[in-house]
Design a protein around this nucleic acid. Sequence first.
DNA 1: AGTTAATCGGAGCGGTCACTCCGGATTGAA
DNA 2: TTCAATCCGGAGTGACCGCTCCGATTAACT
Lengths: 204, 204
Amino acid sequence: MTAPRRASAPDGGRPVRADALRNRARVLEAAEAVFAEHGTTASTEQVARRAGLGVGTVFRHFPTKEALLEAVFVARLGRLAAEADALMSAEDPGAAFFGFFTRVVDHAATKNALSAALAEAGVDVRETTAGTGRELRRALGALLGRAQEAGTVRADVGLPEILTLLVGASQAAEHVGGDAEVRARALAVVFDGLRATPPAAGGH
Amino acid sequence: MTAPRRASAPDGGRPVRADALRNRARVLEAAEAVFAEHGTTASTEQVARRAGLGVGTVFRHFPTKEALLEAVFVARLGRLAAEADALMSAEDPGAAFFGFFTRVVDHAATKNALSAALAEAGVDVRETTAGTGRELRRALGALLGRAQEAGTVRADVGLPEILTLLVGASQAAEHVGGDAEVRARALAVVFDGLRATPPAAGGH
DNA sequence: AGTTAATCGGAGCGGTCACTCCGGATTGAA
DNA sequence: TTCAATCCGGAGTGACCGCTCCGATTAACT
């Protein structure tokens, strides 16, 4: 394994310049902040200003605005997946599952367009997001499985339904926004639906 | 009552011209179709072309694109409210409530940006939509009340939660789109949560 | 038919946005 | 230090969009 000196050299050439790496990180950070604050319609120039760089620099690292959005989404999804993985070792599987669900939704209420990321990752439109989307689905699926084995979540729901519910709840949170009280109660209804009582005896 | 000759004369002046009325209706119809098909970002020119009119005409009837969107939203919300009212005389209150809910969600899966209309009406951002939004909420509230009295829907949920759930479900349907099977199962979970088992005996 | 006032059509205006291009600054290796 | 490869900055380009303006058209009334 011919390890490169500093950063991962793109196969054959010299290593990536330090400033390029630093600026790329800055752009990503700025983009995340700006898109969270002003929505995905914010201009690339706003991102560049926030990062203290020129637009040209932004476009060199992310050749398209879509690519930039994708990168931001992937970063968020990755962090979410990591969080889900961390919860796999929790004692109470049910609490872990519902806790993760709640955390994602609460996050969506603040961070603009998180729900869009989730929706895309769920449906796998883009090529790049497919990878991290798969990772998130795997982690969420594992969390779900544990909760189902523990009997906290009914056994007749699958990952696709959960993902749909998660997307819906996140988007609702994003648009209803303000009232955390209402949000919590609505979420509680969904959770009650996810808990016990399979179809079973339709109790009159 | 000094009844005007043809169309409602705007108090004092001559009656509204017939072509103006016809074109207004055409614009609204075209706008609904175009926005449903291409989303709210579709240009005003597209709407004008679809209506077979010039952009100037569109802008005279709806002085702003926002106004046009509002008009489309109001029309949809009005129809929804009427539908809910019609269901008030149904035999089974529970079936009426859940049926209406399902219908709205299914509709959102097809008609683009319906969920946006619902979200706006729920939060009452615009002045104009406030009226029809209130009407929809009233109708939905009545439907909910009947279902609760009949014991089909748990008594400890309020209209705000229902509206949040409706918005969320609609937006999820719009973005997840394709798979009607998954959509139905996810909705079934929400419905189960809305049905019986109040807080009651919290099954250990 | 003739008159009047409202309506129509669509070229054009101002502004924004994603994206490009290239001279000059930086970096890392020799 | 020297030098080549690489990166940065930001003015500029082309396309699009919401909206306006005004001559041509048309409906309503006499």
